[in-house]
Design a protein around this nucleic acid. Structure first.
Lengths: 161, 161
DNA sequence: CTTGACCTTACCACCATGGTAAACCTTAAC
DNA sequence: GTTAAGGTTTACCATGGTGGTAAGGTCAAG
């Protein structure tokens, strides 16, 4: 079943055996995962989002990643580590691959993301401060009296009806 | 169909008409929503989590909320506003309703939540700083050169294979 | 009796990630 | 050559908190 298909060696565009792919410096999804710090699961997920589609598969339908794909996966990983959403990353990746981009476009995206993070930080800090003020007033002992519960229960004691 | 069921007036435990419920100071889910600042949707969701289950329904199967329920819904709302997860809120609510609680239990939960928020704040601040450093070095003009993309693409330029 | 506002349940969606299962493939050891 | 281990495939379900929608029942006012 394999031996009569050995024309694969002379036709690079046709599906490959895994060993051939290795010999050509191509990577399976597991190797891609190790090389990028992503999980195979997430690599498939990014493919389903249309971000990274390996151009080839082996005869056994295994994904085959090229060096270019590995670079793109690393790009995605780094952008995720900076907190960008997948939608933002899709745009960033297309800008990255567009040699005619303007750095202004990229910077705009970055500044928007910074502002989103600022808002989340601010909101967290507000909650943190409110709760930590309450915790500071709570004895934290065996008694049931608790300013934390009091405040949550009654944060603006209206009538109920 | 309704008139032969008027025994409902003399049996408070039986399902009510909506008008009867109103007359008793009870509330529909829409009113509960207005009184608490939650949406009807979320009130049903909290019920599905086992947090707030109205003890009665009308003949027409409408949820009927008592003053006690409204208080509990407000408690949930306030705790959400402090960033507590639903799991934490379930515990907080049971502590709130347990007169034999110790304030130490509540404080412990609060301190844990504060620490979670600290971690999220720290992580966001790290990402924010990294990105804002990069943005500061980006011209943001018509040229394609962009330190932001460079850094994302090459954040630790290893060989790919 | 109609109309509009409300209520009911039961779905699907988000976002990024993890998990599982069943089937298949590859490789190495025996 | 068979087998066992481990990698890969697809296809599902789950998280958490919220939003939406659809199809149907109910209530109140005109």
């Amino acid at each position: 079943m394999k031996s009569d298909m050995n024309s694969r060696v002379s036709k690079p565009k046709a599906p490959l055996e895994l060993a051939d792919a290795h010999a050509k410096g191509l990577h399976s999804i597991g190797e891609a995962a190790k090389l990028t710090g992503l999980t195979a699961k997430m690599i498939r997920h990014y493919e389903s989002l249309g971000l990274v589609t390996p151009t080839d598969r082996t005869f056994a339908n295994y994904r085959v990643y090229q060096t270019r794909d590995i670079h793109l996966l690393r790009f995605i990983k780094s952008a995720r580590d900076l907190g960008f959403s997948m939608k933002q990353i899709a745009i960033l990746a297309s800008l990255w691959q567009d040699s005619a981009r303007s750095s202004a476009e990229v910077k705009k995206l970055a500044l928007e993301h910074i502002q989103e993070m600022d808002e989340r930080i601010h909101s967290l800090q507000q909650m943190r401060k409110a709760l930590s003020d309450l915790a500071g007033r709570c004895h934290g002992d065996e008694r049931p009296d608790c300013p934390i519960l009091d405040a949550i229960a009654c944060n603006s004691c209206h009538n109920t009806d």
